[in-house]
Write a protein that binds this DNA or RNA. Structure first.
Lengths: 208, 208
DNA sequence: CTGCGTTTGGACTCACCAGTCCATATATGT
DNA sequence: ACATATATGGACTGGTGAGTCCAAACGCAG
């Protein structure tokens, strides 16, 4: 008798294909303008299969959004080890900062943000999930680091949580806004590095 | 013979009513989910009247968005005289900053932002118009002021344009994000003032 | 009062879409 | 091979919505 039985993965494969198709189409066209027929076509499944997996359109949307939000903070968390290795504040901020810049410029991240902004009024839970898995999480990572620097006497910050928010705001907001609304902005590695350096310099000056 | 003839204003009145109804409903429900029938009802006109004034739904939407964008920078421009009266950087930044905080928290401003974010991929002109009448304009106002302080030797800023962006990012982004996605945030006058003071302090320290 | 621009209510066409139903096919596990 | 879970293609229902058409009403200006 075999210890591990073979397993029918049709369910999972189809489920994944549906979610992936939903991601692409919802992000591309928005919630209201994306039809279940289109998602079915894109996923290579029948519409009835979607309804076998998800109760309705909204249920698919929320499931998809939760999945995407869960993936949001992951890359930043992976950076944490690297950033902790006894480095100076400037080095730490630079490493985390560059990672954050790259993250917000990802098409998926931008698509997710767009959906949250446009759909969170009619489904407020989306905003909460997005915030907790995303900004709140990444801010916490940074504020913990800042706490360590404060304890070591390197920086003077009374509210590291607000300071972390401030750092990411300085770093990301101008670029993010332009990307989101399609205004020309230089996203070359050189330009990003320059901006990052300037922000790190100013931030440290402001908090030391 | 009278110098000024009476004038039929039905056109203008209806036109305005249509635009106002469009604003409210598009902001409330998004573009795709708002029907022309609903706008007609809300404006108190017949649907055919809308089509007598606007070629189609998209045309109405763009006209409405342009009208709203034109109103975006106006309050900030009005602040300009006040802010210039030989004040210190801190006082100037505080005055402009508080005005900006109030502006971004206006339901109309938030609704406009939401529409720009969600609709600018399919109509890129919206992003451009919004950016130029809004952020770019208000940033220019501030960077001109910063230029004056730099010339007077009060602040040390090599790129006032970027610095203006940074100031507004520090000031507005954390609050704005939370407002936009419906996360709890303290918007009491006291909390705003406190945040503003902190940001002004840090900004000046970073650039002097 | 008359001419004409503006507006109206209602009906209409055509396309789209969420969700349902159905008979059948397919694939898996025993 | 058989039982059963999963998936399919296609048709369908009922509703919605952009835009059009039409005859008539309304309101303004001269």
């Amino acid at each position: 008798m075999t210890a591990v039985a073979a397993k029918d993965t049709r369910n999972e494969d189809k489920h994944r294909a549906i979610l992936r198709a939903a991601e692409e189409l919802f992000m591309q066209n928005g919630y209201a303008t994306t039809s279940m027929d289109a998602i079915a076509d894109h996923a290579g499944v029948s519409k009835q299969t979607i309804y076998a997996h998800f109760q309705n359109k909204e249920n698919l949307f929320v499931g998809m959004m939760e999945g995407m939000c869960c993936r949001y903070g992951y890359p930043m968390e992976c950076m944490l080890g690297e950033a902790q290795a006894g480095k100076s504040p400037a080095d730490t901020l630079s490493a985390l900062g560059m990672q954050k810049l790259r993250l917000i410029a990802l098409p998926d991240a931008m698509g997710l943000f767009r959906l949250v902004i446009s759909e969170s009024t009619r489904n407020p839970e989306l905003g909460r999930i997005f915030y907790e898995q995303g900004p709140k999480f990444t801010n916490k990572l940074l504020s913990d680091l800042l706490d360590a620097y404060v304890k070591a006497g390197t920086l003077k910050i009374s509210n590291t949580s607000a300071a972390a928010e401030t750092f990411y705001a300085m770093l990301c907001q101008p670029l993010h806004l332009k990307l989101m609304i399609g205004v020309d902005v230089d996203t070359s590695e050189k330009a990003l590095k320059q901006h990052l350096d300037e922000v790190v310099t100013r931030f440290i000056k402001a908090y030391s």
